[in-house]
Amino acid sequence: MRDFDIAIIGAGIAGASLAAEISAFKSVLLIEAEAQPGYHSTGRSAAFWDESYGGPSVQPLTTASGSFLANPAPQFHDGPLMHPRGALHLGTQGHQSLADALLSDFADSGVRFERLGRASIEQHVPGLLPDWISGLWEPDCCDIDVGGLHGAYLRQAKRHGIHLQCNARVQSVQWKAGCWHVSAAGMNWTADILVNAAGAWADEVAKMAQVRPLGIQPYRRTIAQLSVSPAAPVNLPLVIGLDGSFYFKPDSGGTLWLSPHDETPTVACDTAPEEIDVALAIDRLQQVVDWEIHRVEHKWAGLRSFAPDRKPVIGPDPKNAAFFWLAGQGGFGIQTAPATAKLAASMIVDTVVPPAGVNAIEYVPDRLH
């Protein structure tokens, strides 16, 4: 006997989006260790949709998610979940080869870029220091309403009758008698399929289930919210260093979100920002613009988790098809969530149509065994 068709561990954007997609067809248990879903990586996202972010292997999932985010069904969400921002990949004379490589990587993808010279760059970024003379403009980059998207997925899943159990850190997972036996917070359930959407904890869940871990490594990413003068323009694009050393974008009220684009290996945990990383971010910003920094209003850190080849892991484990991987989504889990959830659901429910333009073979866990 089993309690549910599907048990999903992790109610962040990965688990919530899949639950919403399959709960019309299957009974679903959604297990969350924290008091509320999305506490870790989902709730600490920099909240943008950028087709080139994550590289060519991630771009098909991002592109396939765009129309859903721009025009969701009325019953899913009232209005668009992303809004135009634009992205500027910014460099010095020494970064020309990096710009060329970025254009080459996406030459046949349909991602739109435009080369910009100094005069055009200054129209996007006031107060730019003299060294920054080259850029690639990516006009289709948008902000994402992360809270709105995550909440809409949870509401859809609940309308379909899922059981969401928060404050339930998984204590044991066992495969016996043809189903999974899951214990968490003194409760016990059974399910036919176990979905590992545990983010930074994905390999820990696999070990618990006696499934071979895939080497999914969490990394710390730092963001600081700064009060600056002049105030950050509301139409400032997402500005990304071509060398990968920073990105920044405006927040409401004229403040600035700034990251040193750090990836510090760490254990899975409730991570916190390090002062050295905040200082590094500010130092890098001061080498780009002449703005005065008044104070750090807020700072936080989140975890980004990657498989060894930095591609998402989506699909059944080759040794036990009842163990389904939905992990390794790095820092692009939000912007790829609609397509990723559709793809995962199509592997579990035959009647779900996979997203167009996405090759499932790119993401199956078999590649890592």
Rank of each mutant, 00 (worst) to 15 (best):
A24H: 08
H294Y: 09
R221A: 10
V228M: 08
G148I: 10
H298G: 00
D145K: 04
V28Y: 02
V173T: 13
A177E: 14
T255N: 12
V58I: 13
I13P: 03
V296A: 00
A224C: 12
D3R: 02
P130L: 08
V234N: 15
P126D: 13
V234I: 11
A107S: 14
I361P: 01
V195N: 07
Q75E: 15
L129N: 11
I348Q: 11
I276L: 09
F323R: 08
A279W: 01
L128Y: 12
G186R: 02
E297T: 04
P126S: 14
E51C: 04
V182R: 03
T271R: 04
G43E: 03
S227A: 15
S52F: 10
V146Y: 01
Q286N: 14
H89T: 09
F106L: 06
R304K: 10
A87C: 15
L129H: 12
V313R: 07
P308Y: 04
T222A: 04
S259C: 06
A339Y: 09
F106S: 05
Q93H: 14
D203Q: 03
T62F: 00
E34H: 08
C141W: 00
D366C: 09
F4I: 09
A99S: 13
L98C: 05
G254V: 14
K249S: 11
L343V: 12
Y53T: 07
I293F: 01
H261Y: 13
G135M: 08
R220A: 11
R2K: 14
G315E: 08
V278S: 03
H150K: 07
Q174W: 00
I144V: 15
A301R: 05
W180R: 07
A337M: 08
D105C: 04
A73W: 06
V352A: 03
A198V: 00
P80Q: 06
E21I: 02
T255F: 01
V58D: 01
W325L: 04
C179M: 11
L102K: 10
P355L: 03
G91N: 10
Q286K: 11
T63R: 14
P72F: 03
